[in-house]
């Protein structure tokens, strides 16, 4: 079968109202790779993701998924291969119950009732949402909604997962759980995000997008260590790579140094609550 490869060749897209979206983007993501797509607001991340799904068709350039070039003919097949998790789960959960929602894709793909049921159960179990099966989606919490939305995509068994800001609007624990969950997936992943700490956890490779162009493409840690590059693209280092706000250890924050005068009362006493994020064992979950 196809090799779970996503390739963009010189994609150009301008919105009908003249707003430039992406201007000449090329990249190739190979089987099993996990790639972060980072960039400031309006850099073109979402536009690029919509291209991968054929929702927007490029003015110039082409998208290849596996051995197929994206076109009207291959659209249905490519949409099945590329599972897309939207930024707002409310857009993705449109059926009356979580069960119906997760079953929606498999049923449309023509699976039997029995097989669809099985896929739903598996997908919900994977994201830890089996107990939500009969609940209406609009009654779920943010974290539950996100889990359900991911299950709807997993039930289709896509080869490639494309996610738009998967950690947005989640509380810290839900965010951590989601990161651990995503780390267990062996799909080819493309994750558009501002959450650079998550990118460090999940993605070995990072694409930096700035004003519709790719300004860097390389190993995540190298890119995030490059202060000048990040600044030029409207980004900052992941919090974990910034100096500790309490004692100032680690690399000094370039843009903003917290006023030290506020800290001392806190510093030499309340140490139990303060540790360097780098040492957090939680962060070793990714493979």
């Amino acid at each position: 079968m196809s090799h779970h490869i996503v390739e963009a060749r010189d994609i150009h897209y301008t919105y009908p109202d003249g707003t430039p979206g992406v201007r000449g983007v090329s990249f190739r993501v190979t089987h099993g790779e996990s790639v972060a797509l980072v960039g400031a607001n309006g850099a073109g991340k979402s536009t690029l993701l919509l291209q991968l799904n054929g929702f927007l068709s490029a003015d110039r350039g082409e998208i290849r998924v596996g051995d197929r070039t994206l076109s009207k003919k291959t659209l249905a097949e490519i949409r099945r291969t590329v599972g897309m998790v939207f930024q707002d789960p409310d857009d993705q959960l449109f059926m009356p119950t979580v069960f119906d929602d997760v079953a929606f894709g498999p049923l449309n793909l023509g699976f039997s009732a029995h097989e669809a049921r099985q896929r739903v159960a598996e997908a919900l179990a994977t994201v830890g949402a089996a107990h939500l099966s009969d609940r209406p989606p609009w009654r779920l919490s943010g974290g539950e909604k996100r889990a359900a939305a991911i299950a709807t995509v997993l039930a289709m068994e896509p080869e490639i997962l494309v996610m738009d800001e998967p950690t947005s609007n989640l509380d810290p624990r839900s965010r951590r759980r989601l990161i651990e969950l995503l780390a267990t997936f062996h799909h080819t992943k493309i994750i558009a995000t501002h959450d650079l700490d998550m990118a460090m956890d999940l993605c070995e490779r990072t694409l930096v997008l700035h004003e519709g162009r790719i300004t860097a493409d390389g190993p995540t840690e190298e890119i995030f260590a490059n202060q000048d590059l990040l600044a030029a693209s409207g980004l900052e280092k992941p919090l974990r790579m910034q100096g500790c706000p309490v004692c100032g250890a680690g690399s000094p924050p370039a843009v903003f140094r917290p006023p030290r005068v506020l800290a001392p009362a806190h510093h030499h006493h309340g140490d139990s609550a303060h540790h360097h994020d780098n040492d957090d064992p939680d962060h070793d979950h990714h493979d």
Partner: peptide, 19 residues
């Protein structure tokens, strides 16, 4: 529009099938 896209992504063809 976003919902429609989400539906198309999951193979919507005008019929809602429910188990």
């Amino acid at each position: 529009q976003r919902i429609h896209l989400a539906m198309r992504c999951r193979g919507f063809d005008g019929r809602v099938r429910v188990l």
